[in-house]
Amino acid sequence: MLKVDRLAIAGLPPLSFDVAAGDCIAIEGPSGSGKTRILRAIADLDAAGGYVSLEGAERTELPAPVWRQRVRYVSAEPAWWADTARAHVTRAPDRHRFERMAGSLGLAPGLLDAPIARLSTGERLRLGLARALADEPRLILLDEPTGALDATATALTEELIRFQLLARRAVILVSHDRAQIDRLAQRSLLLGAAMATAAQPAGADVTRAPAAATADERVATLARRWGTQP
């Protein structure tokens, strides 16, 4: 579904990888290694050379707003411009999904109409995710989606991400939580020190199966968990 071809980001080797519909790949690397910059470049929020295409359409063939309706960058620190969370979602069908998703993330309905400034960091993070998924983007770029969440909220967030994958959307996940990557992702993109230790053959694309399991095993595990065929 997503094809990244020689994406050029300063300080990183050209990146090439594919993500299929229903797949989740993770980006791993130490802080400052460029994980967020990769996500922003794919969403076309920062200029970057190379080619990125989604379902056959290169990003420059589409107006940037249309591209970003399909390729959604979800920031680690969601920013707000209206007073309440609900006011950030204007289209009626999106509002419906937004409310459902906020509920599935364990947020009480009253929080949608509470002043944003009164909400906790974790509540804002989950509302930001619900807002980003409300209009059903095709590719979801998640930057530390559970960074500020407790165990229960993390589990609910991961359920929502799995649900997106089952709906044949694709996810690129940036996370510092190794166990979370193991639970969600089929493959990992390794950056910086992580890339060096992976002893990657020269010239190959930089995506590699994590040492813990091969991609096939991982897909099989996911499929078993959800009762679908890989």
Partner: peptide
């Protein structure tokens, strides 16, 4: 001051005029 909010709107698919309207 509103830089983060403007970027959030752009990321959600707003045009530059929509994102900077306020």
């Amino acid at each position: 001051r509103e830089r983060a909010a403007i970027e959030a709107r752009l990321a959600l698919g707003a045009t530059r005029i929509e994102a900077l309207r306020e």
